[in-house]
Simulated assay, not measured.
Amino acid sequence: MICEEKVTEHMLAFIFSGKMIVYNSSKKIIIHAGEAAFIRKNHLVHKIKQPIGSTPFNGVFLHLDSRLMKDIASLITIPNIKLNDTLGKQLYIPIEKNNFISGYFRSLDKYFTESNSPSHKLMKVKLQEMLIILIEQKPQLIPMLFDYTPAWRTDLQEFMRNNYLSELSIEEFAHYSGRSLSSFKRKFAKMTGGETPARWIMHKRLDAAMTMLKEGLAASDVYIRVGFKNLSHFSNAFKKHFGVALTQVS
C-alpha cells in the first residue's frame, strides 16, 4: 500500500511486522520489523507498507502534536542541547533498538487493538512517557522535538529544490508548501525574478535530464524519471531548451 503524506508534525514510527519504505525526491529509507524511526515535520513523503511473505504489515505511528508538546514541556526537565546541523537536515533519524522503545510501542499498540480508542488525557500521559524515553535515550533529538516552528510553513526555495521531480500540479506544490495558490505564485515570482512555477519546474527537470543523459542513461528511461508523459514531448522540450537534439548528447 502506497501513501502520500504531508508530515506537518514530527512523527515516530515503530514497525512490528513487515517493512515500510519511506522516500521523497532525494532520500529513500527502509524501516524493518523491530525498528523505530523519527521523521521530521514539514516534509512531503511517500510511505509504502509491505508485508513479508504471509506476515502482514503492522506498525504504530505517533504524531507529536506541537500543542501537547508545549504542555508537556512545562511538566518535565528538558536539557539544553544545541541542534546538530547535520542531524537537523535529515528526513529520517533511526532510533536504536532498546527495551524502553520497543516496550513503549508494544504497550501503545494494545490500546488501538481494542474496540475503544484511548482518551485525549491518556494519550497525553503516553506522549509524556515517550518524550522522557527519547530525552534519556536520544538526547540529540531535543532541539527538534521542542521546536515550535509553525507546521508546514517550509522554506519555499528548499521545498522546490527537493521536490521539483515530484508528480504534483502547481496547486499541489502550493498546498504542500503550506501556502495558498496566490501566495505561492507571489512568493515564487519574488524568489525567481518573475519566472513562473511551471517554467521553472520544466527547466529544472530538463537540466536534470541533461545530467542523466551525460551519465549514460537512455532517453527512454530519462523522460519518465524527470516527469514527462511521453518521449516526443520530452524530445521537443529538450531541443527547445538546449538547442540540441537528444541524439547529440554524449
Rank of each mutant, 00 (worst) to 15 (best):
I2C: 00
C3W: 13
C3N: 15
C3F: 13
E4W: 11
K6V: 12
H10N: 15
M11L: 12
A13C: 04
I15C: 08
K19V: 01
M20F: 07
V22D: 01
V22M: 06
Y23G: 00
S25Y: 03
K27V: 12
K27G: 06
K28A: 11
I30Q: 07
I31M: 01
A33V: 07
A33P: 11
A36P: 10
H43E: 13
L44T: 14
L44S: 13
L44H: 12
V45R: 02
K49I: 04
Q50G: 06
P51N: 01
I52L: 05
G53L: 08
F57N: 09
F61W: 14
L62V: 14
L62Q: 13
S66Y: 09
L68Q: 13
A73M: 09
S74D: 14
I76L: 07
T77K: 15
T77S: 12
I78H: 07
P79A: 01
I81Q: 09
I81C: 07
I81S: 09
I81T: 11
K82I: 11
L87G: 00
L87T: 00
G88L: 01
Q90D: 12
I93A: 08
I95Q: 08
N98F: 02
F105D: 10
F105H: 10
R106K: 14
S107G: 03
S107F: 04
K110H: 08
Y111E: 09
T113E: 14
E114I: 11
E114A: 13
H120T: 14
M123W: 04
M123Q: 07
K124S: 10
K126H: 10
L127K: 02
L127Q: 08
L127T: 09
L131M: 09
L134W: 09
L134M: 10
E136F: 04
K138G: 03
P139H: 11
Q140S: 03
I142R: 02
L145W: 03
F146T: 05
Y148R: 05
T149V: 05
R153M: 03
T154Q: 06
T154P: 08
D155F: 01
D155P: 01
L156T: 03
E158S: 15
E158F: 05
F159M: 06
N162C: 04
N162A: 09
N162G: 04
L165M: 14
S166H: 08
E167D: 15
E167Y: 12
L168P: 09
S169T: 15
E172I: 09
A174P: 06
A174C: 15
Y176A: 02
S177R: 06
R179L: 12
S180C: 01
S183H: 13
F184H: 05
F184G: 04
R186D: 07
R186T: 01
K187W: 04
K187E: 13
F188E: 00
A189F: 09
G193C: 05
G193V: 12
E195S: 08
P197Q: 08
A198I: 11
R199Y: 07
K204S: 15
L206E: 04
A208K: 14
T211F: 05
M212W: 03
G216R: 00
L217A: 14
L217C: 06
A218V: 01
V222Q: 03
I224R: 11
V226G: 08
F228P: 12
K229H: 13
N230S: 10
H233G: 15
A237G: 03
F238Y: 11
F238L: 06
F238P: 02
V244D: 02
A245S: 13
L246M: 02
T247P: 00
T247M: 06
